[in-house]
Amino acid sequence: MKTILETLDSGTQWLEKKGVDDARRNMQLLLCHQLDCSKIQLYTRFDEPMSEESLIPLRGMLKRRGNREPLQHILGTVEFYMRDFYTDSRALIPRPETEELCEIVLKQLSPVAPSKILDMGTGSGVIGITLALEYGSQSKVSCVDISEDALELAQKNITSNGAENCAVQRSNLFEGLDSKYDLIVANLPYVPEVDRSSLAAELTYDPDIALYSGKDGLDIIREFIQKCQSSLEAGGTIALEIGIHQNVEVEKLLANEGFSDIKTFPDLSGIYRFPTARWSGN
């Protein structure tokens, strides 16, 4: 019977052969999930034997990961801004860069709680829920998406995180929205269609509607920028997440539509990823 350490080592080697990046960390997290323990607790149990009862479901999870199904889908949750969120194939898996977007909004763009916030293209709801909980009850957040499946997942996360000042609504961008907002945050699809074949295998498990947006990746963002003014209060702000090398074009789009105070913040890798702007109301 294999020990936990032997299982960790053999599983890591198998994932490496399957081309999984950071294979040992993946195997550690699968073991922690199966054994219901923390990583530190796992280290203290290395000499314990693995029971067949535990190995059977672990083999199933390992096979799924070897087929490049995202680790987050297998575990069913992901940590985002120090909270746990459900995640699955109904919406884009929350990325660390999007945590940076929330940080910019909370610490630099709008340190004082806005009254009404719109999370456009909410997906699993992580941005809207994070802002709702960080700002508190003085802010009301609308989590909007075109996908009913994504909204079901967002509602599940709203409930599990107790975000009572958050509500979901289905809309194709701003169709049917009759409110004006002080802050609109959006992580919309921005991957060019031409990049489809070059993306990591794990991204094939994300819904296409959450990833791709025309030849240069900016079709939906263009439409968003052209239409969002009617949903912004005078002096209201927007914050976006975009892809690599898209900031110059997005800044031009914002300027052409009459936005001011346009600035794009870099992510931790130095990529200019987060355009922000203010709407004067003119």
Results as ranks from 00 to 15, higher is better:
L5F: 11
D9Y: 08
S10C: 07
G11T: 03
G11I: 06
T12M: 00
Q13H: 05
W14F: 12
L15K: 01
E16C: 06
K18M: 14
L42I: 12
T44V: 08
F46R: 06
E48F: 10
I56T: 15
I56W: 10
G60P: 10
L62A: 14
L71I: 09
E79R: 14
F80W: 12
M82F: 14
S89N: 01
S89L: 01
I93R: 07
I93E: 10
P94K: 13
E99Y: 05
E99L: 07
E103K: 13
S115T: 13
S115F: 09
G123F: 01
S124G: 14
G125H: 10
G136C: 04
Q138E: 15
C143A: 15
A150T: 01
A154H: 08
K156R: 15
E164N: 11
N165D: 13
V168L: 09
E175L: 14
D182A: 12
L183F: 04
A186N: 03
A186C: 07
N187L: 10
P189G: 04
P189I: 04
R196M: 01
A201Y: 13
Y205Q: 09
Y205H: 15
P207I: 03
A210R: 02
Q229L: 00
S230V: 11
E233L: 10
A234K: 12
E241P: 00
I242H: 08
G243P: 01
Q246N: 09
V250P: 01
L254R: 05
E257A: 10
S260R: 14
D261S: 15
I262H: 05
